[in-house]
Design a protein around this nucleic acid. Structure first.
Lengths: 193, 193
DNA sequence: CAATACACTTCGCATTTGACAAGAAATTAC
DNA sequence: GTAATTTCTTGTCAAATGCGAAGTGTATTG
């Protein structure tokens, strides 16, 4: 299978020559997953890190009442991992599950370790993964604070319309921090305007 | 003024010899601030990074209705900075303000840059700053999802009792994601148990 | 095709939470 | 020490939100 798109993703993330990017891309293993398969389980230690090429993935955890709460929805191309669990080899704090069939690129913890010291580009990629994740989390956190549920919904439609063709409104609602009932009400109000 | 405590903080963060830690510590400049002074202003680019030795600081932003929402409360010893603004030299997304008089250790962006390449310990400290901030943010985010306001309140008392002697309940309530009215009700219920 | 499951919407009701205002207590300023 | 300000609590009321159930439409399966 072609690593062409993966290579471009790497170059978008960290500028480097085609050759270097090709070397890095070849260190990933292609993985296909069905719908509803798990990448990470809460409480277990992450053994691999992923890049998503096609499909949709969500991370979720349980609230105090036992309800599943979606913490993130991943659409391609992007890193998919529990960075803290992976780098610090501590238990995952969330579950990661495919929402649709997915094509992923996988690298094991051992492979990352083996390449980390020899290749500066590798370290840079790891660093960028951390910064990207942190940045996304912060944007999300501030969005939760500053915006109303309706504003978050409109932003999501605008920025990730593909999610609405592939992910159920129940999961989207949970990601927006509301129930599917409330989301339904919001959608009704918007169409009436 | 003695850099002794700063040096120990550095060594707790990244294990290194006393000599190395002393060199690093000496690159910080001691700063004293009054109550209610600002370290960072939303929209401006961070020019310095801080370590808090004594006092309390909060970060906050405005929600869609213009209310101040406290995003974090900092108590010593800890890093205080808008990491993304500092490292990527992009506008701050929050305001940082002293809640009490504070003693801080400051390093300018230029000094960090000047030392970053020569000293591996420096890079490590920067990396650890990023990881610590990310980890804290993630714990906070998950706490907001998984716990009730009462549970968050009890955890804060348990883990940072000193905050309750130095920070107003209005700010604490906002940090917990509720109004001061709700916090007052929670406190009442707890004492009645 | 029929049966079943699933996704989404909608209704009524209960609960939670916030907004506002009043008042008590504590702190600060002069 | 007194006045002024701020902080904290408490009550009432209104709005927002979640919950459970019912109903509709769509997709899936045997």
């Amino acid at each position: 299978m072609s690593t062409e798109h993966l290579q471009h993703f790497i170059q978008r993330t960290i500028p480097m020559t085609n050759e270097k990017a090709q070397v890095l891309a070849n260190k990933f293993e292609r993985v296909e997953l069905e719908k509803n398969e798990y990448l990470y389980i809460e409480g277990k230690i992450s053994k691999a890190t992923f890049v998503l090429e096609t499909g949709f993935i969500r991370s979720f955890t349980l609230d105090s009442k036992g309800n599943e709460v979606t913490t993130n929805i991943y659409s391609p191309f992007c890193f998919v991992n529990d960075v803290l669990s992976f780098f610090k080899q501590q238990p995952c704090t969330e579950n990661f599950q495919t929402i649709t069939p997915c094509v992923l690129w996988k690298m094991s913890y051992e492979d990352v370790q083996a390449n980390f010291h020899g290749m500066p580009e590798f370290r840079e990629l790891g660093r960028m993964m951390l910064i990207t994740n942190y940045s996304n989390l912060k944007v999300r956190m501030l969005g939760m604070i500053k915006d109303t549920a309706e504003q978050r919904y409109l932003k999501l439609i605008e920025q990730h319309p593909a999610i609405f063709q592939n992910v159920s409104l129940k999961i989207i609602a949970s990601y927006l921090g509301i129930t599917d009932t409330s989301l339904s009400r919001i959608r009704k109000e918007i169409t009436q305007k």
